[in-house]
């Protein structure tokens, strides 16, 4: 007699592996939820930069760093869990959150965070992908072949995180003027322009990265408009980077 259509063992085997997959996703979701909370908390404190004059950064930055430390420990949990499975099988479940975490880290460091920037309390330093990996204690840019298939920070994660920073900085440029810190606005503008030039070097395909990169030009324009407004009124301080807004602070006062 003919063998059965379906080997009876097959069903159990498939069911078991589908159930395992579901269980992995559930656990992952929990971890990502926690990370998400840390990220939005950090983003919350970080949003205070828009209303904090630069002289108060030394007190604000350590608070932000606490949030980032939480992110780091959540990412460590995520890393050790996700490394058990093929990275690209599940990474879309947390890529967005991870990118947000990276962007908080990049922005905080750029602002001169004492723990993450080599230039404490002096804004303007951009962490590289490798720096990010070092802070997050994760490998970066793993590729095929001999690399292990484990949790890591991809180039895309870094770039997408960086684009969020650009967006945030263009907002900060405006608010820093309001706070009487024209020098910061000028510095931001030139930073954004540099990054924009950098992104222009890339050969992008029609994907999410391309779409987000396209948004940078609006940030550039926003920052340039601010600089234009400042220069029109002769508000740009002669020397950059020191005690900003030297000429006029009465705008807000």
């Amino acid at each position: 007699m003919a063998p059965p259509m379906i080997d009876p063992a097959l069903f159990d085997q498939l069911r078991a592996s589908i159930e395992e997959d579901t269980a992995v996703r559930k656990e992952l979701e929990q971890i990502v939820d926690e990370l998400n909370q840390d990220v939005s908390f950090t983003q919350g404190i970080l949003s205070k930069i828009h209303s904090t004059p630069r002289s108060k950064y030394p007190t604000l930055l350590p608070q932000i760093e606490q949030g980032i430390q939480k992110e780091i420990s959540s990412i460590a949990r995520l890393s050790s869990f996700a490394s058990k499975y093929p990275y690209y099988k599940y990474n879309h479940r947390y890529a967005r959150t991870l990118q947000d975490a990276i962007s908080t880290l990049l922005l905080t460091a750029w602002l001169g965070s004492p723990s993450f920037s080599p230039t404490p309390n002096v804004p303007g330093h951009l962490l590289t992908l490798e720096d990010v990996g070092r802070v997050l204690q994760a490998p970066v840019n793993l590729k095929s072949g001999r690399d292990d298939d484990v949790f890591h920070v991809t180039i895309e994660d870094y770039l997408l995180g960086l684009i969020s920073v650009v967006d945030d900085l263009s907002r900060l440029a405006m608010n820093s003027v309001t706070l009487g810190d024209a020098a910061l606005a000028v510095q931001i503008s030139s930073f954004i322009k540099d990054l924009h030039a950098g992104f222009q070097i890339l050969n992008l395909k029609n994907d999410i990265l391309r779409k987000r990169v396209d948004s940078i030009k609006y940030a550039v324009k926003k920052a340039e408009d601010i600089v234009y407004d400042l220069s029109l009124r002769n508000l740009i301080p002669k020397k950059e980077g020191e005690a900003g807004g030297a000429e006029r602070t009465e705008e807000t006062a």
């Binding site: 770039l159 540099d194 030039a197 950098g198 992104f199 070097i201 890339l202 050969n203």
Partner: peptide, 13 residues
């Protein structure tokens, strides 16, 4: 435009 980030972006490219 050549600036301090150009090498980084070239690697990324």
């Amino acid at each position: 435009v050549q600036n301090q980030y150009t090498p980084m972006f070239e690697t990324i490219r």
